[in-house]
Amino acid sequence: MSETDRGHHDIGGDPAGPVPRAEHVLAPWEKEVDAIRTVLGQKGLMSADKLRLGIEQLPAEDYRRLSYYERWLASIAWTMEKDGVIPPGSFAARVAALEAKR
């Protein structure tokens, strides 16, 4: 397998700088995203594999730019729409509606 066959998530062994050591306490929304994944997992709707698949399908630039739980959020929303759990397009529409009310 050549280097070019690797997905943008497959970074083991790549050169990189010092490991950033700052840690942050999770924001409530981050805990909520984590909890949604866990509960969906318990219901058989969102395995770790599905979560990873959705994250790995993100365009490379989003994968690098988004924060950890933003990647999760994008993956879960995409998977729930793809699997027909929530209506297609409903996530973006709901985010836009909530933004408009802000």
Binding site: W29, E32, L73, M80, R94, V95, L98
Partner: peptide, 15 residues
């Protein structure tokens, strides 16, 4: 944070 928080809320509401 607040934008992402809206996303989390949107997802929870829809589910």
């Amino acid at each position: 944070g607040s934008r992402a928080a809206l996303g989390a809320r949107a997802l929870r509401e829809l589910l």
